[in-house]
Design a protein around this nucleic acid. Structure first.
Length: 490
RNA sequence: AUGGGAAUAGUUCAGCAAGGUUAGAACGCUUGCUUUGGGAGCAAGAGGCCGCAGGUUCGAAUCCUGCUUCCCAUACCA
């Protein structure tokens, strides 16, 4: 087989890049750091959006849309928020171009904006400024709003899907009348993300909270889900923040409670992005290409005809079209690859590269025997299936592949989850076979920073319900009550 | 931003040291024939302001200067 991918073992990040390009998911654009998401990649994102959007609505949220631009003055109102994002903001300073004397066009210096606009890196500020007018009474709460949008963060170094200057995401912004209710909301949404990751992406995730260092700028608590990629590095897949009254205070959002007393509103925000595409790619794919979970594949089955003559093709097409109707009835999505320009072998390799969960081939032999060749992408196993058993086989495979790729990822994570009691062990694991490391930590920012400097590993999360176990911090030897999860991360 | 490297066909690159006619290859693309159960073969063809601006020279992809952009390493994270 002609190779188009770099082997995963040889160069993991090269493998990832090749895969994104060759599977036709996305490519770099003429704009530095910004990607073009191609139709095949975008249709996976659309599937993710559809499922998540349904989950948000089921949990009582509604969609709205807020502006792309944020006045500079809004941005500075929440101190730690500015600090967190200031270094990576795109800023609009002018509103007009003019013809240049040197030819071409230039920014018209007379068209300077009175107040500069920030291209949103996240929308807390513009949304909370709006909420001030929406919230007057406890009767206006809770306010449960989600937005699907693009945001811009001027990243130095970008990688397709994992870190791009512009990315697509959803951001939920909720307002509550009590601390307790806001905390519950933040936890509820991280659990929504976790079940989406596990049931749809087929990626096992750990749920927990961030250490102070890794917390969102402006949050009092950040909940997160973390997954382990095949190279042993962690990927943050989603976050949900308890913002306390920080934004309500910054934007003066108050409500009258039942006792007719004025109170500041409690807030949360939560988001997942096109980075989930990166997670999906890295969690399951192999040296032959992408491996997609049936629940998110643009189509679940591809049908490849094998024929010599036009008559043969016509005969086979009739039978394939009958099959397509049966697939439709059974809600299995499909593509009949009837291109005459490519040979079967080429198509096999191409669809494997694109991760289609099941491939069905039919040639003269199958036609005569009334059978189909069925190949599953996750294990690459091939099987001849009789026509009468085909649909039930496919229904079984959709479920089985979904479960199998989750199980494989879970087994991998298990085999790469360690406990370290000494700093030497800790460093040794990171150097030899990285993964999640459970270790004791003294709870200080300084220690986490030292460990990060020396090993590049950070605390990915503090487990939700940690097993209480007295121990000593691997770095300082100070007492610790439970272990936290360390890893190198993306 | 600092340090290092690069810019030539759609893509990956050769050519540059020692300047000299119509600037090459592979892959991809187009057309035809042939083939089709794991990325076929043959033939013909299209495709380039050699990153931009200036300089040296009879002559510049090649030498010199300036600029721009990209890539690799460090900081950032959804």
């Amino acid at each position: 087989m002609a190779k188009v991918l770099t082997d995963r073992e040889e160069n993991y990040s090269q493998w990832y890049n090749d895969l994104v390009l060759k599977a036709d998911l996305a490519e770099n654009s003429a704009v530095r750091g910004c990607m073009v998401i191609k139709p095949y990649g975008y249709s996976i994102w659309e599937k993710m959006q559809a499922v998540l959007d349904g989950m948000f609505k089921e949990t009582g949220h509604v969609n709205a849309y807020f502006p792309l631009f944020i006045p500079k003055s809004f941005f500075s109102k929440e101190a730690s928020h500015v600090e967190g994002f200031a270094k990576e903001c795109a800023v609009v300073t002018h509103y007009r171009l003019r013809n240049s004397e040197k030819g071409g066009i230039e920014v018209d210096p007379d068209a300077k904006l009175e107040e500069e606009l920030i291209v949103r890196p996240t929308s807390e500020t513009i949304i909370w400024n709006t909420y001030r007018n929406w919230i007057k009474s406890y009767r206006d709460l809770p306010l449960l709003v989600n937005q699907w949008a693009n945001v811009v963060r001027w990243e130095m170094r970008t990688r397709l899907f994992l870190r791009t200057a512009e990315f697509l995401w959803q951001e939920g912004h909720t307002a509550h009348s009590s601390k307790q209710e806001a905390l519950e909301e933040a936890e509820k949404m991280i659990n929504v993300y976790a079940s989406f990751a596990q049931e749809y992406l087929g990626i096992p995730v750990l749920i927990g909270t961030k250490s102070e260092n890794e917390r969102f700028a402006g949050a009092e608590e950040t909940y997160c889900i973390e997954a382990l990629m095949q190279d042993g590095k962690a990927l943050q897949c989603g976050t949900s923040h308890f913002l306390a009254q920080n934004f309500a205070k910054a934007f003066d959002v108050k409500f009258l409670n039942k006792e007719n007393k004025e109170e500041y509103v409690w807030a949360t925000s939560w988001g997942v992005s096109t980075r989930l595409m990166g997670a999906l790619i890295m969690a399951h794919s192999d040296n032959n290409g992408l491996v997609l979970p049936p629940k998110l594949a643009p189509f679940q089955v591809v049908i490849v005809p094998i024929y010599k003559t036009e008559e043969e093709f016509d005969k086979i097409s009739v039978r394939v079209n009958e099959l397509c109707n049966r697939l439709k009835e059974n809600s299995i999505s499909y593509k009949f690859d009837n291109r005459d320009s490519q040979r079967p072998g080429f198509k096999f390799a191409e669809w494997e590269l694109k991760g289609v969960p099941v491939r069905i081939a039919i040639g003269p032999k199958d036609y005569d025997n009334n059978t189909w060749e069925v190949a599953r992408r996750d294990t690459l196993e091939k099987e001849i299936v009789s026509d009468e058993n085909l649909i039930s086989k496919l229904v079984f495979l959709m479920d089985d592949i979904q479960k199998n790729i989750f199980r494989k990822a879970a087994d991998f994570r298990e085999s790469r989850t360690y406990t370290a009691d000494t700093y030497e062990d800790f460093k040794d694991i990171l150097n030899t076979k990285p993964g999640f490391i459970l270790a004791h930590w003294d709870g200080t920012k300084e220690t986490e920073e030292k460990i990060k400097e020396e090993t590049k590993a950070t605390i990915r999360l503090i487990p939700q319900n940690p097993v209480l176990e007295a121990g000593k911090c691997i770095y300082t030897g100070k007492p610790s009550k439970y272990r936290v999860i360390f890893a190198k991360s993306y």
